[in-house]
Design a binder for these strands. Sequence first.
DNA 1: GTCTATAATCGGATAGAC
DNA 2: GTCTATCCGATTATAGAC
Lengths: 216, 216
Amino acid sequence: MAKDTKQRILDAAERLFAERGYAGVSLRTIVAKAGVNLASVHYHYRSKEELLKAVFARRLEPLNRERLAALDDLELRLREEQTPPVECVLEAFLAPVFRLAEDEERGGPVFMRLVGLMYGESGDLVRMLFMQQMTEVAERFYRAFARALPELSREEIYWRLFFMVGVMAHTMRASDQLQLISGGLCKLGNAEVMTARVVHFLAAAMRAPEGCEVRG
Amino acid sequence: MAKDTKQRILDAAERLFAERGYAGVSLRTIVAKAGVNLASVHYHYRSKEELLKAVFARRLEPLNRERLAALDDLELRLREEQTPPVECVLEAFLAPVFRLAEDEERGGPVFMRLVGLMYGESGDLVRMLFMQQMTEVAERFYRAFARALPELSREEIYWRLFFMVGVMAHTMRASDQLQLISGGLCKLGNAEVMTARVVHFLAAAMRAPEGCEVRG
DNA sequence: GTCTATAATCGGATAGAC
DNA sequence: GTCTATCCGATTATAGAC
């Protein structure tokens, strides 16, 4: 009937970490929510830190596999010399996140905030964990964007990818706030709608010619 | 010689909150860094929570005053019917942040991470504190952007402002990470350089025509 | 206003019975 | 695998001397 202890802990921890951050949640809060015993956390995971790693790994690994698969897919559809539309590269990176975010089976909306949290948490633990998981993905997507935007310098591409991540992370973390601020006007859409909205916004920015300053 | 206790606490708290988040820092760590006694925190501020509020207020109030002043300034320079260049509105919002960020007297680089933290911290405390401080600013800037981009719908403007905040917050919080990832290629510039970079990127995105979806 | 001392609680982790 | 009971350090907060 009930899911097994190990998974109940993972689910509760994910929810709570997403809501309050790593340092903001105690193991005791987690086991209370999970309806399990305190000692079981140390039995199944070795420590609070290892539990956090498990929480991240469960979502991040399939997510990044999806991203890389989408990129493989895109690159297969292109001839050697063609430059991919930047929208497609953006979509390969962003669509898997939004799809996961609406998949209740695999974490649903909770996962959105967890991703946002990963970029936001200031502790070394989370930052290193994240860097580790993302290096391969970052490398592959850097090359894809460099190919899609051949007129941009290396430095400029890095900066723009960085800004892209900022938009994604903020959307993951706080788009419910926008709903409030806008008085309900802005609602979260499904994965397709959200992806299209963000891709459209970012594509225009990514395509901007380099280095022209405008004065009013 | 030494600054007074109250301020020493505030300075230390700001630094530590910026580095590790609210829950990640204990009062004992703060007083150790400040070189003051534990009890003095409770004397000068009533609790850890009140201390956090004081930390935010010290920076946020002048920051938002500067933003509104920059906007006033811009609007004075325009005739009634003119639409301001979106770059100028972006600059009014963003330049004060980057200027504060390089002003050692008023918090310096520490302040950057503190701002990023505000948007990132998931606890209700920080979020409510922030919403409270930002409502007037949000209202004023919404109107300015609506004027600068008259062809966009209300909903679209809200979304784009939201994405803009994401870029800003991420830059505040994590641009040191970019320096690492890029192998030192991307360095943090001074306020002018950073503002120009972000404004340039965002202006292109803000100006994108509404609702056209692109397929590859 | 600043200190010492301490209260009262909460934190992660573990031992050992079942 | 799961539980109770407990260790023990850290935490916020306060009382009361100076």
